[in-house]
Computed example of a mutant assay.
Amino acid sequence: MPKVTDEHRAARRHQIVTAALRCFARSGFQQTSMADIIAESGLSAGAIYGHYKSKEELMELAVSEILDARFLDLAQARRRDPLVSPAELVRMLVEGLTAQIGDLQLLLQVWGQVPINAKLRNLAGTIGGRIRGMFAGYLTEYYTRVVGLPPEEAEPAAEADAPLYVGLVQGYVVQSVLFEDFDRRGYLEAVERVAAAVRTNPITPVP
């Protein structure tokens, strides 16, 4: 029997994840069954269940896969010298999301299910914490190495600024889906200007 490569397994998981996102976006998480995902993917039930046991597990692991890829982007960014700017990090993340998911509308439509589905809401809370933590860690290093803040000031400033950068990524996704005339390059240039202003005056948390 031929050996299944890591690349083949990753491609199969991506195929399943993309099919699931299409189903969730079209019918909602609650109304989507594993049978729907199997039919959408064009794979056999055995192929699906060899990777995921339920749609809840599929969603959780799918999101983890997306986040893990973004954390890899972050790790690569942190190895650069000089350290890339927070605005460049935002650019890397949105370009990575676009390359991985393809149609960002799928992501936005799944987000729309979060307020009405308790399981997704709990998952979103966990995801939000991981993403904020990702930005906070990067910003702490950036404010220390580039801005020159002492660590005791850099860390709380980074924690305070992190939600802003999460919002900038989300804003890109939302506007690129909703607005036909959305200027992607202009948006990222605006992010650069905002990040430059924050860089010279990081947010000071209110005691």
Rank of each mutant, 00 (worst) to 15 (best):
A162R: 03
I66S: 02
H14G: 01
V206T: 10
L123E: 10
I116T: 11
E65D: 14
R91P: 00
R91N: 01
E65N: 07
A62D: 06
R13M: 10
T98W: 00
V146N: 02
M34G: 10
P156Q: 07
A99L: 03
E189K: 08
V90I: 15
L72S: 12
V114H: 07
A45G: 13
E40S: 10
T18H: 13
D68S: 12
K3V: 09
V84P: 04
D183G: 03
I38Q: 11
T204Y: 03
E152L: 13
V114Y: 08
Y138P: 00
E65L: 08
V173Y: 05
A20V: 02
E95N: 12
A11M: 09
R80K: 15
T204R: 15
S44Y: 07
R132L: 08
S54W: 12
A35I: 09
A20K: 03
R121M: 13
A75F: 07
A195T: 14
S64Q: 14
P82L: 04
Q15F: 01
M59K: 03
L72P: 00
A136G: 02
L139S: 00
A87I: 05
L188W: 04
F71A: 02
V147S: 02
R79S: 06
V114D: 02
T204M: 07
L123D: 03
R132S: 04
K53G: 11
R185D: 14
C23Y: 01
V173C: 03
G148E: 03
A75G: 15
P156I: 10
G133Y: 04
I38E: 12
F179Q: 08
T204F: 05
R9P: 00
M134A: 13
I16W: 00
A35D: 14
D103K: 06
R13H: 08
Y187R: 00
P2M: 05
A75R: 11
Y165C: 01
I16Y: 02
I66T: 11
D161F: 05
A162E: 04
R80V: 02
S85G: 05
A190L: 11
A11H: 10
L83P: 00
A136S: 12
S41A: 15
T32L: 06
Q15T: 12
C23R: 06
L178E: 05
K55M: 11
